[in-house]
Design a protein around this nucleic acid. Structure first.
Lengths: 212, 212
DNA sequence: GTCTATAACTCGATAGAC
DNA sequence: GTCTATCGAGTTATAGAC
């Protein structure tokens, strides 16, 4: 057990357990090709093992996919819930929303494409599973926006549009990354720098737009 | 020929040629399931014809996909090029950019997911084909932003971030549509209304944020 | 042009030796 | 635990009658 744990700590391929190598390979292949496009053979090749081993460890392609997916969102969804449940001033909320969102996605840059694809195929079923049958409650935030407009603190704007704007600004770059790199000619290093910079700037961009 | 043309004009299924019905069905299925997830049987069923007819008209699944895709972007890409090539004031440019972008995508709401997916699989090859080996030139717009900041017309902002913001605000809603519908509880009608409203509001949102 | 039947192939899954 | 070999379901693609 200790040996296994020690092995787990090493990132070196040779020191990884087969199970870990499979998980790492599957993640990569599923992200690039999606559930339908991914082949067990691709995953086996990527992991440098035999196809039969995949079934030995995870029984089926579907189960393997599920493990990957649950691991990916297990850390992600609670943080989303937390963001929507916060009780701060609107400007603070916007700041935390953007920072947390971009941080979470920077750590898991493949999640947006993954989620967007599955959600497009099986919206209700997939998203329900993803959010553990408990969808984040937007109404608190939407109501707060409404109130701040009434009070004259921010400029009039449709609360739904404002929230959609925030989501767009935080999520899109991770979906459009290859397109942006192609158009701008940036390399990975430059793109990552852009994302880091963005972490500070997005909230300001939103707040600048609505503050009086 | 005239008869065929007249047939083309009718949207009624019975008056369409088999070829048209296949294309329409294929579009629908490919959008919902992606290239890998789509089944020729699904397309045949959707078109109300036999599977063999698909091959009679388009030889292979790959060729059919290609036809759908080329048709989809043939109208799309030139308009993108035009947007970047415009010679107006920055605020006018932002307005046209957002309006044109959202208009184009409202007419082809499936393109973003399509492009984002393909671009993630084969960035360079795919995007080059898509843009006809002639990538839109961002530098004009980026330079103009730089200049307006120097002149003190707009607040300081990284030109790249500003452009990425505009793209995010215009494109993301079409990718995140099912997620947004799930979270907000909106139906298709409400969502489409949101997009129409957005057409007017996005440019204002951007301009509000950067104008002094 | 359209259909039925079936060949050819891909891919997930399993059996069984080591 | 790991491998090779192979099965069987599901799919793309084609042959051939009408």
């Amino acid at each position: 057990m200790l040996t296994k744990w020690l092995n787990n700590m090493a990132n070196n391929k040779k020191d990884q357990t087969t199970e870990q190598r499979i998980l790492q390979a599957a993640k990569k292949v599923f992200i690039h090709k999606g559930m339908a496009g991914a082949r067990m053979q691709d995953i086996a090749d990527e992991a440098g093992i035999n196809k039969a081993m995949l079934h030995y460890y995870f029984r089926s392609k579907e189960k393997l996919f599920e493990v990957i997916f649950r691991e990916a969102i297990s850390n992600f969804v609670p943080r989303l819930h937390a963001i929507f449940a916060m009780r701060n001033s609107l400007f603070e909320k916007i700041q935390v929303f953007c920072r947390e969102y971009i941080n979470v996605l920077s750590e898991n840059p493949y999640i947006p494409l993954f989620v967007v694809n599955e959600a497009n195929k099986q919206p209700y079923e997939f998203l329900n599973t993803m959010f553990g049958n408990q969808k984040p409650d937007l109404s608190g935030l939407l109501l707060q926006i409404e109130e701040e407009i009434q009070k004259g603190i921010i400029k009039p704007i449709s609360p739904a549009q404002l929230l959609l704007n925030m989501m767009s600004l935080c999520i899109f770059p991770f979906l459009g990354r290859p397109i942006w790199k192609f158009l701008s000619g940036m390399d990975d290093l430059q793109f990552n720098f852009l994302m880091q910079q963005r972490n500070d700037e997005v909230a300001s961009f939103v707040i600048n737009s609505i503050k009086k």
